[in-house]
Design a protein around this nucleic acid. Sequence first.
DNA 1: GCCTGCTTTTGATTTGGGTCAAGGTTCTGT
DNA 2: ACAGAACCTTGACCCAAATCAAAAGCAGGC
Lengths: 248, 248
Amino acid sequence: MSLQDAHNISLQCGACPIRHRAVCARCETDELALLEEIKYYRSFEAGQTVTWAGDKMDFVASVVSGIATLTQTMEDGRTQMVGLLLPSDFVGRPGRETAAYNVIATTDLLMCCFRKRPFEEMMVRTPHVAQRLLEMTLDELDAAREWMLLLGRKTAREKIASLVAIIARRDASLKLRSPQGRMVFDLPLTREAMADYLGLTLETVSRQISALKRDGVIELQGKRHVTIPDFDLLLTEAGDDNDGGYLI
Amino acid sequence: MSLQDAHNISLQCGACPIRHRAVCARCETDELALLEEIKYYRSFEAGQTVTWAGDKMDFVASVVSGIATLTQTMEDGRTQMVGLLLPSDFVGRPGRETAAYNVIATTDLLMCCFRKRPFEEMMVRTPHVAQRLLEMTLDELDAAREWMLLLGRKTAREKIASLVAIIARRDASLKLRSPQGRMVFDLPLTREAMADYLGLTLETVSRQISALKRDGVIELQGKRHVTIPDFDLLLTEAGDDNDGGYLI
DNA sequence: GCCTGCTTTTGATTTGGGTCAAGGTTCTGT
DNA sequence: ACAGAACCTTGACCCAAATCAAAAGCAGGC
């Protein structure tokens, strides 16, 4: 199944821009009509900036294809990625005027956008959508807090294993499988992007990937294509005690 | 003004358990009555656990007095604090069955609780409350992501300066002041708790506090009582480029 | 083919913060 | 007032990851 299909599934009922993990039985016809009305598409090239932190952002959106990152920066250039947007992910802050982070397309990116004002109006009128949005935000908060544990307490090797596990899990969910046993997928990030996500340098990322390869935890074909022979082994390396459903 | 007073202000309209930074013009009389009905108080002793991650949690709550922490742990005992609850802060996950983190009282703690079921019912009926809850969750998400930058990219000295600045800011807001110039307050955390929050060891925390004291960035009376001679200097040490309204 | 400009890997060296250890302070209960 | 227990500070040493440096892989354009 393609990423485009995954997006279609996530927008299942055709009405709600919000990701649905299960079938959505909530949306009503007029909501559908309203959303279709305010919907439009925007595409970005790899490397292009979607928004800068502090800029006005007059839309919310759902990623259709491609990958974008949310990053924080300090004046001296140190950067920390705080979120990764994959197809079917939602981005935007209903009720907020401005963007809080830099949003940057790391591949060619297609987004399904909704103008914010009418979207917010719809939210007020349809509590189920607002509730779903709250759930999604709570999910993101859980993910962010799990990531805080990684950034604060995990070793470089554990960080890499965690990231690979998260991407594997995410990839499996796009394929409607549960993550287990042998898994094959592509890393959607450069070494530098991984470093920004994990609070490491790209050299350390490269070294630890080599080490995990040497130790048989992962296999690499080329630089991006990964095979995981044993997902449980990877989880052990990641130091995860829970099933970590939250992240990304 | 006492902490109790701060709580009263945060619950200003007397109806909504949700923290209001400005005057709340939203709540209607029946919501008030409903909330009063489902409201009860719980107190915990210092060190007592409010909930463990994964446990059933059938209430949401607002901190009246005292301090609690949200922590994540790994099996081997490494812990990372992911949130700090001060008076007027809200805790709980409407729509979720279980707690996601360990919530531990670090001082004697009084919480104003609401049974979750009726609270959720009210949320569905009153979109303003749901919207306010979404705003709060977005605030928490912003804070978590700002914290990710700290954990991933800041030096030990910057981390300490950031934490002190955040506590100063928070203390000022309880006193209805804006943080600036000379400030005096108490650190509500032990060195160990600070270490857990910052992803450091308690020895490093102690050393860096000593260093900031030696360099005149902070002054200490005893172990807890802090004077900041120049708030802007502290912010510079923290490496903050924004005004950091989010954190805690 | 063969430049040119990435991205990635690997090596050598340095360093910030962790670890281990020993005292010092402050608080609490008797 | 005193004992014991937390909590905090400081020192010595070590190590994981950063930094500095160089070379290798790889992709696109001519």
